[in-house]
Simulated assay, not measured.
Amino acid sequence: MQYLRCDVELAKVRERPAPWAGLHVCTVSLRVLDQTSSSRNVYTAPVSVMMNCPPADTAPADHCVVVGFYAAASRIVY
C-alpha cells in the first residue's frame, strides 16, 4: 500500500457525506506488479474502500469491516 486517504480529504465525500456515523470511505493507492514470462510492469492503482466502523449499529464492537470497494475514486456510492 502506498498511501491512504479517508473521508474529509476526498472531495466527493465532502459533497455527499456518509448516511450514518461509522461509515468511512478511504482511497488506497496500491502498487501493482504485472509480470509475465516476457515482461514486468509496475504501476499504481487507486482503489476506494468502504469501511463500517463503530459507532455504526451494524459494525463489530471493536473493529471495522470492509463493506465494499471500487476502482473509480470519483464515484462514491452508498
Rank of each mutant, 00 (worst) to 15 (best):
M1I: 13
M1T: 09
Q2R: 12
Q2H: 07
Q2L: 14
Y3H: 14
Y3R: 15
L4D: 06
L4P: 00
L4S: 11
R5E: 07
C6H: 03
C6K: 03
C6L: 05
D7I: 04
V8R: 15
E9S: 10
E9C: 05
E9H: 05
E9N: 09
L10E: 07
L10S: 06
K12C: 06
K12D: 07
R14P: 03
E15Q: 14
E15A: 15
R16G: 04
R16P: 01
R16I: 09
P17K: 01
P17E: 02
P17Q: 04
A18D: 05
A18L: 01
P19T: 05
W20L: 12
G22Y: 00
H24C: 00
H24W: 01
V25S: 15
V25P: 00
C26H: 01
C26T: 00
T27V: 15
T27G: 02
V28D: 00
V28F: 03
V28Y: 05
S29D: 07
L30I: 12
L30S: 08
R31D: 12
R31W: 05
V32T: 11
V32F: 03
L33Q: 13
L33P: 01
L33I: 15
L33T: 14
D34A: 15
D34L: 08
D34H: 13
Q35K: 11
Q35W: 03
Q35L: 11
T36K: 07
T36G: 15
S38T: 12
S39N: 12
S39I: 00
R40Q: 12
R40N: 13
N41A: 13
V42L: 14
Y43T: 14
Y43D: 13
Y43I: 10
Y43N: 09
Y43V: 08
T44M: 08
T44S: 11
A45M: 14
A45Y: 06
P46C: 06
P46F: 06
V47Q: 08
V49E: 04
V49N: 04
V49Y: 02
V49G: 02
M51V: 11
M51Y: 14
M51K: 05
N52L: 15
N52D: 10
C53V: 03
C53L: 02
P54Y: 02
P54D: 05
P55F: 03
P55W: 02
A56P: 02
A56Q: 06
D57L: 14
D57H: 07
D57K: 12
A59K: 02
A59I: 10
A59G: 10
P60Y: 01
P60V: 04
A61D: 11
A61R: 14
A61G: 07
A61P: 13
D62T: 14
D62K: 14
H63P: 05
H63I: 04
C64G: 03
C64M: 02
C64Q: 01
C64P: 02
V65A: 08
V65S: 07
V65D: 04
V67N: 00
G68Y: 01
G68D: 00
F69C: 09
F69V: 01
F69K: 12
A71L: 09
A71I: 03
A72H: 13
A72L: 13
A72I: 15
A72S: 09
A73F: 06
A73W: 06
A73G: 09
A73Y: 05
S74G: 07
S74N: 10
S74W: 11
R75L: 12
R75D: 09
I76A: 12
I76L: 10
I76C: 09
I76R: 14
V77G: 09
Y78N: 11
